[in-house]
């Protein structure tokens, strides 16, 4: 029984680290979609006159979001490096 439990735990752990690595791949892809395609521009509020401000705020917002995500991810992945 205990053997099975430890097996499950191991399985879970490896699945967890695999997931983390997948997120590490997905994060830059999300960044590319948000920053290089006009996806976000369509959500920009305001008329033509305020376009510069809104676009700038969008860029800063996405940027900050990416940095926060990278921060969380790096804390998760640093244990992987240590494990090796």
């Amino acid at each position: 029984m205990t053997e099975k439990q430890s097996f499950d735990a191991m399985n879970k752990k490896s699945r967890g680290s695999r997931k983390k690595r997948d997120i590490a791949l997905i994060l830059p892809i999300i960044g590319i979609i948000l920053l290089l395609t006009p996806v976000l521009k369509s959500f920009a509020v305001g008329d033509e006159a305020s376009s510069l401000t809104s676009v700038m705020l969008i860029i800063f917002g996405v940027w900050a979001g990416l940095i926060a995500a990278a921060f969380l991810l790096s804390r998760a992945l640093i244990s992987e490096i240590r494990n090796k």
Binding site: L25, G31, W63, L66, I67, L73, S74, L77
Partner: peptide, 16 residues
């Protein structure tokens, strides 16, 4: 902005 966003994307994809 583009000059700074390129490096940002490379760094958040550091693992790969």
């Amino acid at each position: 902005f583009a000059i700074y966003l390129g490096p940002t994307l490379v760094f958040i994809g550091w693992w790969w």
